[in-house]
Simulated assay, not measured.
Amino acid sequence: MYHVDKIINVRTRKNKKEFLVKWKGYSESDSTWEPEAHLSCKQLIKEFLENQDEEKEEEEEEEEYEVDEILETRKRKGVREFLIKWNGYSKSTATWEPETNLSCESLIKQFMSGR
């Protein structure tokens, strides 16, 4: 009988989860993809998925967007907003942002002075 040492990765094939399993007593090169239904290590799976969710959240939090250009301005509910084109993204993905969310004072001044 084989015992799971740890879960290394997860993938979905044919709408079913499979886990890359490192087996106790074997090297990582001997790891195999196993359907979730074949595994009896629910706690290891749960911990792996929770850790993966936390890592994804941290990556999202760490991603910092840089303002490339201010395209327009408007007032909504008394709050000044700017249509922002983000560095590395096309104009089609521009988003409206309240001024308080932005840290590009010089770009705002430059944009406002040109109006």
Rank of each mutant, 00 (worst) to 15 (best):
M1H: 11
H3Q: 15
D5W: 04
I8Y: 04
N9K: 14
V10W: 02
V10R: 07
V10K: 07
T12Q: 11
R13Q: 14
K14L: 08
K17E: 11
V21T: 02
V21P: 00
W23H: 04
W23P: 01
K24Y: 08
S29M: 10
S29F: 11
D30I: 08
P35Y: 12
A37Y: 10
A37V: 11
A37I: 09
H38F: 10
H38R: 13
L39D: 00
L39Q: 02
S40I: 10
C41S: 08
K42H: 13
K42V: 05
I45N: 00
I45S: 00
I45D: 00
E47Y: 09
E50W: 07
N51R: 13
E54H: 14
E54I: 15
E54T: 15
E58Q: 10
E58D: 15
E60Y: 09
E61R: 14
E62C: 03
E63P: 02
D68L: 04
E69Q: 12
I70V: 05
E72D: 15
T73E: 15
F82M: 01
L83M: 05
L83V: 03
K85I: 01
G88T: 02
G88K: 03
S90T: 11
K91M: 08
A94F: 05
W96A: 06
W96P: 03
P98N: 12
E99M: 07
E99W: 04
T100G: 08
L102W: 02
L102Q: 02
S103K: 07
C104I: 02
C104M: 03
E105H: 15
S106L: 10
M112Q: 07
S113R: 12
G114A: 14
